[in-house]
Design a protein around this nucleic acid. Structure first.
Length: 419
RNA sequence: GGGGGAAUGUCCCGAGUGGCAAAGGGGGGGGACUGUAAAUCCCCUGGCGUACGCCUUCGCAGGUUCGAGUCCUGCUUCCCCCA
């Protein structure tokens, strides 16, 4: 049963031609179900941060495609599982989040989801649920009797999430071991309360998803499905989603639309087509045209990608402003008010500020030493002129059109503005 | 419970005869070349200071020593073997 044969349902067709599919549990049956009428599907999200980031985009876009195809997306927030603390990255025992923090994070993330999904009460409207609502109520003994009985240790040990860890002789706590059970009960719960028949996620979630499918089959004797996406990396093998300056958050107050636009603008040549399919609503025909572009022309395609992606998240106006700011900065070599700005008291500037300190405060370097090294390497520029001496003083005499333009490298630009 | 091993630059891996701000990678930053791409090459990568320099780092706490990542003692955590 290969996924190579063409799908009949619009949803799976789209998913396949746009490159979202890595594995499906029962492709033919799922295709049938999706072809018959609206189905409900869900994806789970952690509530550890106050914003989603670019790494979540593929999941968000899947829910969007689902809704576009006339189905019902369910956003599952891990309010319950977050309370336990995701043990996967446990190097330092991170401080556990309080209920209030989790609640705030969920609210904050919802803003981003709302840009991509239509929430409401209709049959194909998206809904958001929180697994704390049912996980919190589970009693230990009840949990073991109701669900634990359906899982054998023998089988659990065969899952990659467990097996790999044991093979590397790394410790795995009982808590982590139980994680897959919790996720399986999430699926069962949503199947019962929302008629959810499909769970989607990254390829690393395959094992967890399978468990949910199994649990539903055993407990409720109903079919359900799982679908995973390929692991996203850039054409040159880098992890997707990293840039100069850390995580690319979706919330505008954590990462400016200008930065978001830049993130997409800096896509590698070989990724443009793939990313357009995954992260924009452009038609396959349009994308094919952009993909055909060669050499420097492909930069036009990258701008389109950046425009489309930014428009969906931040709106037409912000996308426009970001594109314009980029044009002014890179093609004209001037400045624009939409670039990141750092405000400094006018009196301080009047008195003079050491460049190294200013660059550090403005976020271009992590420390003065780093700013010095940056300057020595020729990477620090003041008003577009390389400045090797980080000890020089910046004063109001350096103002050009009311701002001092500082740049670290070619892409990190900050306008220092006296207030 | 008994025995054996391990924790290193607060991103990761990882060398380290008592003189160590500590090899080498990866990752990251910058420069060159280009097209705000990739590949390649070069430089940088603990903090502060203009600077001879000062300060803080090798799981934690003590000790020996002119001097400790390195030796000793105790503790913590983890791994392996035996029970």
């Amino acid at each position: 049963m290969s996924a190579d044969q063409p799908f009949k349902s619009q949803f799976l067709q789209t998913m396949q031609e746009r490159g979202y599919i890595h594995q499906i549990t029962h492709p033919v049956e799922l295709d049938e179900a999706a072809g018959k009428g609206p189905i409900a599907a869900y994806i789970g999200f952690d509530a550890t941060a106050s914003s989603l980031h670019v790494g979540h985009m593929i999941q968000i876009m899947m829910l969007r495609r689902l809704q576009q195809a006339g189905h019902k997306p369910i956003v599952l927030m891990g309010g319950g599982t977050t309370k336990v603390g995701d043990p996967t990255f446990k190097d330092t025992q991170r401080p556990l989040l309080t209920d209030e923090q989790i609640k705030a994070n969920i609210d904050s993330m919802k803003v981003s989801f709302a840009r991509f999904l239509t929430f409401g009460d209709g049959p194909t409207d998206a809904v958001m649920v929180d697994n704390a609502d049912w996980l919190d109520k589970l009693g230990y003994v009840q949990f073991l009797r109701d669900y634990g009985v359906h899982f054998t240790i023998n089988r659990m040990l065969t899952f990659d999430s467990v097996k790999l860890r044991l093979e590397r002789e790394q410790p795995m706590t009982f808590l982590e071991f139980n994680y897959m059970l919790m996720q399986a009960t999430d699926f069962l719960e949503l199947e019962r309360t929302h008629g959810c028949v499909l769970q989607m996620g990254g390829s690393d979630q395959w094992g967890n998803i399978i468990n949910g499918v199994e649990l539903i089959r055993r407990v409720d004797q109903k079919p359900s499905f799982g679908l995973t996406t390929p692991l996203l990396s850039t054409a040159s093998g880098q992890k997707m989603g990293k840039t100069v300056g850390g995580a690319v958050w979706l919330n505008a107050d954590m990462r400016s639309p200008y930065d978001y636009w830049q993130f997409w603008r800096n896509t590698e040549d070989a990724d443009v087509g793939r990313f357009m399919k995954l992260f924009t609503d452009l038609s396959m025909e349009d994308i094919a045209r952009y993909e055909a572009m060669q050499g420097a022309d492909i930069n036009e395609a990258k701008k389109v990608l950046a425009n489309e992606a930014t428009r969906m998240l931040h709106g037409e106006e912000a996308a426009h402003a970001a594109a314009e700011a980029a044009r002014v900065a890179f093609e004209v070599g001037s400045v624009s008010g939409d670039m990141p700005t750092f405000e400094i008291p006018a009196a301080d500037l009047e008195a003079g500020v050491v460049l190294a300190a200013l660059a550090t405060d403005a976020g271009l370097a992590a420390s003065r030493g780093e700013a010095r090294r940056l300057a020595q390497g020729g990477g620090l520029r003041v008003n577009d002129a390389a400045e090797a001496d980080a000890n020089r003083t910046i004063t109001s005499a350096d103002l050009v059109d009311g701002v001092v333009k500082l740049a670290a490298g070619k892409k990190k630009i900050v306008l220092v503005k006296p207030v």
